[in-house]
Design a binder for these strands. Structure first.
Lengths: 334, 334
DNA sequence: GCCGGTCGTCGAAGCGCTTCGACACTCTCT
DNA sequence: AGAGAGTGTCGAAGCGCTTCGACGACCGGC
């Protein structure tokens, strides 16, 4: 395995066929008799042949690699990001593609580079901001791309995400059904709102609209991620609104602190305060008490993003916008 | 930018030189007169030329891509992992390489595939277990590789990591200096020890040896990651050993819970119990009180791993084992 | 029994780059 | 002045694959 690699012409010789025949066996782009196919496949196994990726990319003008652009920004919950990333990798393999990891430190230059050099066939971008510097670049790129998240101006782009507005609204409905009429949203750290990250704002909008629609009293707050800050926020909130009995938490890192703060403030969950979280299932299940939650379907979103980008690569038409419906799992906290 | 890409021969024509001259300007592998170089560089800019990655890989037998093998296993702290990964990407770019992301779900087949197809020139593996299934494969691969972490049998491999044994010992020393003589280590979740993950065990060994060397009373415990479990562990520990006054915590996810538990058990930090953590600086700083800690130098480890793998790629000799010395930052918790 | 049509296979022409050997110059050093 | 040693540039031969057109062989239909 450490000598020179086996080439397609060695396979062809071994099987007694032309090089092109081996290629067609592998790609299935022309009909090959069952007998020849067998012989070729046997030779491939016998010699341990693996097509050379560079040669293949050069000849076919397809690298079979997609870029995953993953800026690791402050305030983003990394485990959630990684679930997306991991789902993208797994899904890409289903389409026989590999994933090249791009981080933010090269800025848009990295995207330009991998696209222009044909290192990748297509791009999946994560953690999209409302006013994202990468978006104009995507429009001028020949390579297809899919965004996980929505920028302010998504026309002409392909975007996938959980329907966060619906998620925010769903939480409110659930609390309303349980009879809570004074509630609050604890959201992302303020830096995330200021940056204009779409999902945080959309959740808030969904929350606010649903509060109005149900005629509740509700307030939406940013929420930092250290225990002390969370504690203060929760304490002040309860001081301001003694009648508050429902909380929606949309902040994976803070949700544990919120529960600890309530505990310290002698509020029982769900008896005194009901809590609904928007977070991955495992976070909700590990909390004490386990939280009623709208799950973030990271696997599904990642899979969908890859499906869309592959469709575009094959020239199939795809919808501009894909919103995945929120699913509420009721647990012990409401 | 969306038409056919510019090729090297168009650049050559535009600059009035041979194709090979353009190539040598780019690679610097032969001397080129300043005048010619200028003309070529100008043409490259004027035409917006980017070398085709596939063609380059084919001709040079170098893809300029390294694989980052990142199994996302239970119990591993993802943000820490991502800091490593991010450092690897950044460092790789310094050497003009990109990073292909491989996760565990393909098993060793993925490693074999990207190596055999020459998709990558080299590999960096993270989250190495003591008895890691990937290790035998690495030995038979022609491509150089570097491990972040140590397997049980590291002979013939190149490994980098924080010196966790020294880190565990350093924490003990610090507590001993402060006059604590009854201490405990709260480590990784038990599943991580059972899996034989090296860093967890090495920290424990360093801890135990230093405890003995200093003649202290010390116990090392696994530590799960939900608040309730942490609370029980801490409560039982304090019940068993009323004289306990120092705690070493080597578990990023649990460290917040430990502090919350101590708070709930009416132990003041550092007055009643001093706490030293082994965790990234930002986690230590965000805790309340900020924690004295041995930092996990993720950036440095990632950078070093890439440097080593590049050295191997160039045929330079590298040390089998690189252990980074622990650095203790004293903060408010001791 | 001859014609048009698949079917299965082959050979050759690239894909865009790197690298090797060759060669024409220009400098030294005697 | 001529040998020897660089410099700077060029042309051509691949790298290992895909894909296109060509071409026998074999089929059924009249």
């Amino acid at each position: 395995m450490s000598g020179r690699a086996v080439t397609i012409s060695e396979v062809a010789k071994h099987a007694g066929v032309a090089v092109s025949t081996v290629s067609y066996v592998l790609s299935g782009k022309r009909t090959i008799s069952a007998d020849t196919r067998r012989r070729v496949l046997d030779s491939i196994n016998a010699l341990g042949y693996h097509p050379n990726a560079g040669a293949r990319a050069l000849a076919s003008r397809r690298s079979n690699v997609i870029a995953l652009v993953l800026p690791l920004r402050a305030g983003m919950h990394v485990p959630v990001l990684m679930r997306f990333a991991s789902a993208v990798v797994t899904a890409a393999r289903r389409f026989d593609h590999d994933v090249l990891l791009l981080t933010a430190d090269e800025g848009t230059a990295g995207i330009r580079r991998v696209a222009a050099s044909a290192l990748v066939d297509a791009l999946v971008l994560m953690d999209v901001e409302l006013d994202d510097r990468r978006v104009p670049l995507l429009r001028e790129l020949a390579e297809p791309s899919v965004l996980i998240g929505f920028p302010a101006e998504p026309a002409g782009l392909t975007c996938v995400d959980l329907d966060f507005a619906a998620a925010g609204a769903r939480c409110v409905e659930h609390l309303a059904e349980r009879g809570h009429d004074e509630i609050a949203l604890l959201g992302a750290p303020s830096v995330v709102y200021e940056r204009g990250t779409g999902f945080a704002r959309r959740t808030r909008e969904g929350f606010v609209e649903a509060v109005d629609a149900h005629g509740l009293k509700g307030v939406a707050l940013a929420c930092e991620e250290t225990f002390d800050e969370v504690y203060e926020t929760v304490r002040d909130l309860l001081l301001d609104q003694p009648g508050l009995s429902g909380l929606v938490v949309h902040n994976e890192a803070a949700v544990g602190h919120v529960l600890a703060a309530l505990r310290q403030l002698d509020r029982r969950v769900p008896h005194d305060v009901a809590v609904v979280a928007i977070c991955p299932d495992d976070v909700a299940e590990r909390a004490s008490p386990p939280l009623t939650s709208v799950l973030i379907p990271a696997e599904e979103v990642g899979r969908e993003a890859v499906r869309l980008v592959m469709d575009k690569l094959e020239g199939r038409a795809v919808p501009d916008s894909t919103l995945l419906a929120p699913q509420l799992a009721v647990r012990a906290s409401t």
